[in-house]
């Protein structure tokens, strides 16, 4: 077993229950998971099995009821609420199913947000956002509004936004399910080529079997547990 500090994510016995009494739902029933730096892990499983709940806890936006979740050797529970927020701002990038780009902000401004949250000045943040957009193939669209872009382009902006502050963990929840197959594949190609790096781990929740080939490992969840982890032997 790897020591937690050399791991990007180390989860042991994670549990999470929503609601109380009759309405109680046990979303996680003891999840064990390890994700390595430089790895692209896909999380798959039937609807309601707890995938979103799991990545929410790993990303630090939700608290587990029990078990351990350690990020690069750090247990978020040792932090104050405010420290956790700041930690998240520095270390985690998010990609959402519905892009969640702010419609009143330009593409460059949207991309710059994580940098602004981390305290960069607007001018510098925009400059770095534009570099990032160029890398992702959106040069020339920096000053467009999100609604002026196609779905695939919008998701690429969202990816740029998730990577612009160079986080050590990127979580994506169904990043391709709002896109057609071709576009979804291209978005995954972009993610794979830009997001994966030696000191970053990528967790992608997906239903989309057509993008499984991009994964290094695929974790199958069912009913609040990880039931199976396969290394992808596509090579």
């Amino acid at each position: 077993m790897h020591h937690p500090e050399t791991l990007a994510v180390y989860c042991r016995g994670l549990t999470k229950t929503f609601g109380a009494g009759e309405m109680q739902v046990q979303a996680l029933r003891g999840v064990d998971l390890e994700v390595h730096p430089g790895e692209l892990l896909m999380l798959v499983g039937p609807s309601g099995c707890g995938k979103t709940t799991l990545i929410s806890i790993i990303a630090g936006i939700l608290h587990q009821d029990g078990g351990e979740c350690i990020l690069y050797g750090q247990d978020l529970r040792q932090f104050s609420k405010n420290e956790r927020v700041v930690h998240r701002g520095q270390n985690v990038g998010f990609v959402f199913q519905l892009f969640n780009l702010v419609p009143t902000l330009t593409v460059a401004e949207n991309t710059a947000i994580p940098l602004l949250i981390n305290g960069l000045k607007m001018a510098e943040a925009l400059a770095r956002a534009k570099e990032c957009l160029q890398e992702i193939g959106l040069k020339g669209r920096e000053d467009s509004l999100p609604t002026q872009l196609s779905g695939g382009q919008q998701q690429r902006v969202a990816i740029a936004r998730a990577l612009v502050h160079n986080p050590r963990l990127v979580v994506c929840d169904e990043p391709t399910s709002a896109l057609d197959h071709q576009t979804g594949r291209r978005v995954l190609e972009v993610l794979k080529s830009l997001a994966v790096s030696q000191d970053r781990a990528l967790i992608i929740v997906t239903h989309d079997a057509r993008i499984f080939e991009f994964a290094d490992r695929i974790a199958h969840m069912d009913d609040g547990r990880i039931v199976d982890i396969k290394t992808n032997n596509r090579h």
Partner: peptide, 18 residues
Amino acid sequence: DNLRYFGVYKAMGTTDRL
């Protein structure tokens, strides 16, 4: 109308104070 985006900012590490 912007609650969703405030939520995104929050997830991305914006403190309550900010």
